[in-house]
Amino acid sequence: MTDDIRVLLVDDQQLVRRGFRMVLDAEDGLTVVGEAGNGREAVEAVRALRPDVVLMDVRMPGMDGIRATELITAMQPACRVIVLTTFDLDEYAFGGLQAGASGFLLKDARPSELVDAIRAVHRGDAVVAPRVTARLVQLAAPALARSRPRDESRLDVLSEREREVFLLMAEGASNAEIAERLFVSESTVKTHVGKVLRGLGLRDRVQAVIFAYEIGVAGS
């Protein structure tokens, strides 16, 4: 169907790509439009096929998944990239998110988690495997805190309520959790989240968290 989510599979192991394809082909609303065996092939495939979501391996010969992610998100900003890796302490994970990825999952994620992640990033949400969220923050916060002075003035474009929502997003709170904290509906939170992202020129929640660390308002 024309409104299916178009997915590109990128992994240097054919068996891994085949396994992902079997999972996704069984799902309504998802279509695998192509495969690539390394980062360079992935960039060319995105240029030719214009997928909505890319499942991106990290460690591949030639161009790795981090560099490919950076090129793909610059070339086609509407394309969402989910970084996939075997290692829950992978030092490249945060690099992938900084490069523009909208999600990070482990390859041993359940099929339902993979499918949910694809649909979530296509909606504009961010997805980070719970097992690695704390590790990503641990890796990222010290470096960002050293390299960026606190600069809350960059939040001046936000209203007071939008600023509250942004700070809760930076803590990793979901829409439901934000709604509970602020005593508003989830639909209201969703509206505020959209305004926050547009106002700050951010693509998704992952970028919002990174931005919060960069300006020194998270992790302190």
Rank of each mutant, 00 (worst) to 15 (best):
A109W: 13
P111A: 10
Q14P: 05
G39E: 08
R67M: 14
A109F: 10
A99M: 15
D25G: 12
D57C: 00
D116Y: 14
F94V: 10
A141P: 02
A126R: 04
Q138K: 10
E41L: 03
M22G: 07
D151A: 04
F183G: 07
L200V: 13
L139C: 09
M1P: 08
Y213P: 06
Q14N: 06
V43W: 00
P130S: 08
A120C: 13
D116K: 15
V23T: 12
Q138M: 12
E171V: 04
V209P: 04
L182I: 11
L136E: 06
R47C: 08
V189T: 04
T133H: 09
I118M: 11
D25H: 09
E186A: 12
L182S: 10
R18L: 08
D156C: 05
R154Y: 04
L168C: 12
E35A: 01
L139I: 10
R17I: 01
A36R: 03
V46H: 02
V81P: 07
R148I: 08
G201D: 10
G219M: 14
R110Y: 14
E113T: 15
E180A: 10
V137L: 14
R18I: 07
L97V: 06
D116V: 15
R47A: 11
F104Q: 03
A36V: 00
R6M: 05
R18K: 08
L114I: 15
G65V: 03
V137S: 07
S187D: 13
A218G: 05
